[in-house]
């Protein structure tokens, strides 16, 4: 058994996570509007399961010629860091080519969010995996 433990440093914060996470959690960007016409997206993917506590759905619009991601919409069932990481990922991916976007790692998402508690990183890992799965889906078409 481990005898020492990490002292949790809240630094006088009023929210469990960083300001960036708080901002994206309460004001998520690019959430799919339920009235949106799904036909305009040419790549999608869904990963996770409700029993695991996280489900992410990603909808991409990729310019077939330039291979640039022109739109990224999403739905997420999950905790604050899962919602915030999908939200920030959507901003990071829009405007990138699919080759560039494919290289977005969990580490980069965590960095962009101003850090996440170690045990929470598995949540954001889901976001980049969902994006890559959607790009794979596009390439197969």
């Amino acid at each position: 058994m481990k005898n020492n433990f990490d002292v949790i440093d809240i630094k006088g914060r009023k929210f469990l996570y960083s300001q960036k996470v708080e901002d994206h959690f309460f004001n998520p960007r690019n959430v799919l509007d339920n009235r949106a016409d799904l036909k305009k997206f040419n790549a999608r993917a869904k990963i996770g399961a409700p029993a695991c506590g996280d489900v992410m759905k990603v909808y991409l619009r990729i310019n077939p010629k330039t291979k640039i991601i022109t739109d990224f919409k999403w739905k997420t069932f999950g905790c604050a860091s899962a919602i915030a990481s999908t939200s920030i990922l959507s901003e990071m991916a829009i405007g990138k080519t699919i080759d560039q976007a494919y290289k977005i790692t969990a580490d980069k998402i965590v960095k962009a969010l101003g850090g996440l508690p170690k045990k929470k990183i598995h949540c954001s890992v889901l976001g980049d995996r969902a994006l890559r799965a959607a790009i794979d889906n596009f390439r197969k078409r």
Partner: peptide, 14 residues
């Protein structure tokens, strides 16, 4: 259904 507990707790905390 479709509402994750931690998210709900943090919304209510706000």
């Amino acid at each position: 259904a479709n509402v994750e507990g931690e998210s709900l707790v943090l919304y209510l905390d706000k």
